[in-house]
Amino acid sequence: MGWRWFHEWGSPKWFYDRAGRWQRVCGFLALALLLVGTLWGLGFAPADYQQGNSYRIIYLHVPVAFLAQALYVAMAVCAIVLFVWKMKLADVGMQALAVVGFGFTVLALFSGSIWGKPTWGTYWVWDARLTSMLILGFLYLGLIGLRSAIKNPDLAGKACAILVLVGVVNLPIIKYSVEWWSALHQPASFKLTEKPAMPASMWVPLLINLLGYYLVAAYLVLASMRTVILDRERGSAWVREVIERD
């Protein structure tokens, strides 16, 4: 024992079958959690004493922005796994994470900018968090572009892994420099380590939604990974079996 999991995780067929089941579970749980969290946040949480009802955007914006960054870190973990253990699945994961991460970044940017209108009076402020999110979006875009430009998938995966690792080392530097640069900065309202200043009726739905969006991201990443696996392994016998079975 001990190494069996490693071989299983290295086997695309094993993963393809499992991921199909996980994906369904993630999808249903995400749907349920998001329904509860979003309705709670929109209808049942009390209005903010300063921002009124506009703060209700937080139930989408904050989890999505959090995930946009978390997905980049997940990609960095995949990059390390790819370099250290040469696990092809990690490369598939990177490819899927880049697309989903870019989608979440775009959503975070647009929701943040719409939230900015009632809060700051304008759609775009060069606020620290918006700016570093914009740079994160460019990083994701660069990864997608780099992968699509290199024809050899092995080469593309390793090139992307280098870029991801250089990016993940730079992200904190970018974040701190942008924060230092920007004077218009409000402190993050939600930290896992501190007791939040919000009442429970406000942060519980936020936590539910955070979990929900995590599961949505997992659903999307798993679905996308399955597609990539199918495409890359199209010559192998098991893929043909799977397709004939369906």
């Binding site: 660069g142 870029l163 990016g167 970018i174």
Partner: peptide, 10 residues
């Protein structure tokens, strides 16, 4: 260039 430019920010 496009891939690297965002890293120039700091």
């Amino acid at each position: 260039v496009l891939v690297m430019l965002p890293l120039f920010a700091p």
